[in-house]
Design a protein around this nucleic acid. Structure first.
Lengths: 218, 218
DNA sequence: GTCTATATTTCGATAGAC
DNA sequence: GTCTATCGAAATATAGAC
């Protein structure tokens, strides 16, 4: 183990302190944005929520828009981390689609704040995206969203090939499936006493409904 | 026909002039809210969009929040007007559900602006709903949203009884179905050249997917 | 009924102390 | 690295002319 600087050896080891601080800000920001929306959230609110002041936030993020982008990007990271292994897992198209849908539903529930911020609309708040940096970030996020939809689309097409999934308009089907799940950011709110088993039950029921439809099978 | 006031008979008949003006404001507001969101939309923008000034808007609506509520209420009116006849129409549960889903999908496409404002979140912007009037309006809109979900839930239950629809968690199924359709406010934007037939095709495809699911039928 | 002008507040961002 | 103090821009709402 590398010895720490002798001059400050009495201080507790604070590895990656600034990264941790950044994450704390991200969580506080996600919660504020979720509750009030982008414009109605002031930097003061975010700082107060984590027991700090504006100066701290501006020390870690150059502007409010960058903070907003960082929140959405982190939410997307979580989506990919959950969905990609499921999409690339074993089984035929239908089995993998089920795995992806359940994983995505769980992601929605377990990071509602981050996901709802994404739902609020990336492009909306950056309509006049002033700086080139912001325009680039906007394009980057749009690209990742498209990539996520393509991930699901690929599973659908694989299923259409192996016969486990009914052929149809892939783009529109992806919108329908993701819409049903992403809509959870509108109505789902974690309850103090709820457990993972309960969330898994919801995820399974939703996936069932989407896979099998609502009409009675012959 | 009742004769108009003789003193002003030379003026062109302007029946319901203020009501028309109100509607114009409503449309302009819906479009601005759709593009920029509630907080980022200024009263000036709304006025400019209809070639007027702030004073006009404040003459018809006491505050920005009331205008926002009025937009959402009108959007809900459109939803009920389309869905209720379909829900109360002829046929078994599955047939009526199909009619409701297609009607709702069409409503989403043909009044995107109004519907997207609703998606933005009623409760979000009124978190601290200051005046009692605003709190009452908030409760009113929440009640109507619940009533709309109940409308669909009733059709589902009727279908479960007559055997046309698979039994299941009604509340969760309603959320899934409405989620898939309401999500259109996120991605659907009317194109200059699109026609009603195209929208109907989208509505039918979406309803098909939700009714039959995506896995291949045995 | 619609406009202009303005009072008042709020917030993003910066400067600089510690 | 975090805080206090403050500037300047923007927007809601109002007052009053026409």
């Amino acid at each position: 183990m590398k010895p720490r600087d002798a001059q400050h050896s009495e201080r507790p080891a604070r590895v990656n302190d600034t990264a941790q601080r950044r994450d704390e800000i991200l969580v506080a920001a996600a919660e504020c944005f979720m509750i009030n929306g982008f414009e109605a959230t002031s930097i003061d609110m975010i700082a107060r929520r984590m027991g700090a002041t504006k100066g701290l936030v501006y020390h870690h993020f150059p502007a409010k828009a960058d903070l907003f982008f960082a929140v959405i990007e982190h939410g997307m990271d979580l989506c990919f981390q959950a969905a990609r292994p499921a999409a690339e897992g074993p089984g035929d198209g239908a089995a993998r689609l089920r795995a992806v849908l359940e994983a995505h539903a769980l992601t929605m529930m377990e990071s509602v704040a981050f996901q709802k911020v994404n739902t609020q609309g990336v492009e909306m708040h950056m309509h006049g995206a002033s700086t080139p940096d912001q325009r680039a970030m906007l394009a980057h996020l749009t690209g990742r969203r498209d990539a996520f939809e393509a991930l699901i689309g690929d599973v659908l097409e694989a299923g259409a090939c192996d016969g486990s999934i009914a052929p149809g308009d892939v783009r529109l089907t992806v919108k329908a499936l993701l819409g049903a799940l992403n809509w959870m950011t509108i109505w789902y709110r974690p309850r103090p006493g709820d457990e993972r088993a309960g969330r898994q039950a919801i995820a399974r029921t939703l996936a069932d409904t989407l896979l099998n439809g609502v009409v009675r099978r012959a």
